[in-house]
Simulated scan of single mutants.
Amino acid sequence: MVQPAGNFFAEPAPSDLVELAADERPRFWVTIDTEEDFDWEAPFARTGYGLSSIPALADCQRYFASAKVKPIYLVDWPVVADDRAVDILGAARADGACEIGAQLHPWVTPPHDEDVSAQNSYTGNLPRDLQRAKMIALRDAIRDRFAMMPTVYRAGRYGLGGETAAMLAELGFRCDTSVRSGFDYRFGHGPDYRNAPLHPWWVRTVAGAVLEVPVTTVFGGLLGRAGEPVYHRVARNGTHAGAALARLGIVERIALTPEGIPADRACKAIDIAVDLRVPVLNFSFHSPSLQPGNTPYVRSQADLDLFYQWWDVVLDHLARRGVEATTAADIMAMAARRPPG
């Protein structure tokens, strides 16, 4: 059912979906949640986080620059406030080697007018005026620190709300990448993206249109795309059931990320997405994974070595499939050929 325009959770009209032209190949985009270090198992807190992973951004940027990939660093409030991050990322952006966007963690972003809680960790659950005030604070901090106005936004924890699109358009954002297709966060007070498209789509609001570029997740296994509803029914009570489905080869959910997804499965997901002619294969990971000990995915130097080896394998596979790196600017140019209907 098509819901009113201006809502990320509305089913897009066919005219609002962005499709590849007959002679176009899919492209890939590297989006990095560039954020503070904190204990993912602990309650949310406004203080007590670390920033020791910031210097590792330099190694990350050198790696992608050598691979001729221009990632977009979606920076949040503590990162923007860190001079080292501004020096590293500002220099790379000045060289044309990366892009910078915004990522909003509401619990560490002023104004601090809400209780810190799991529910309020999703920006879209906050009162509209408070959401908007936090967006403005982060947007303006990026403007002042990086001498540029961000136009790409990601809600921390993928926490969009029903009015987010209109606020983004009002505040000058032109692209959102908060939707994580194939995931359901309702158990933690978050959004439900199970039925979100893989293709980018235009979200129309009275303040203008925002392009949604979802983080890519595909479904493989014996059931193929038909297995997606099976996965959601069986795995709704936890990830172990989903893992069992994958082990049996019935259906598996594969996100394009080095965090928890083996390289061979990511390559399989690339093949599926290419066959589906998904215009933008949107990869993502969290910047604290660039330093051992911050996330469940990189606990040791050996894990970090494997993290970069993962990218070696995946980038090589993308090259073999003829999928080239892209940027936010290029994605917007591609989408502009099919303006919102």
Rank of each mutant, 00 (worst) to 15 (best):
T164V: 13
T164S: 15
T164I: 12
A165D: 10
A166F: 05
A166C: 11
A166T: 12
M167A: 11
M167W: 08
M167H: 13
L168P: 04
A169G: 06
E170Q: 13
G172E: 05
F173N: 04
C175R: 11
C175W: 09
D176N: 12
D176A: 09
D176G: 05
D176F: 03
T177R: 02
S178V: 10
V179S: 05
R180Y: 14
R180A: 15
R180K: 13
R180L: 15
R180I: 14
S181C: 13
G182Y: 08
G182N: 05
F183R: 14
D184W: 09
D184L: 10
D184G: 10
Y185W: 14
Y185G: 08
Y185H: 12
Y185C: 08
R186D: 03
R186T: 15
F187K: 14
H189E: 11
G190R: 03
G190N: 01
P191H: 08
D192R: 08
D192L: 07
D192W: 02
D192G: 12
Y193A: 03
R194V: 09
R194I: 06
N195R: 14
N195A: 14
N195P: 03
A196Y: 00
A196T: 01
A196L: 05
P197K: 00
P197M: 00
L198H: 02
L198F: 02
L198T: 01
H199Y: 10
P200F: 00
P200A: 01
W202R: 02
W202Y: 00
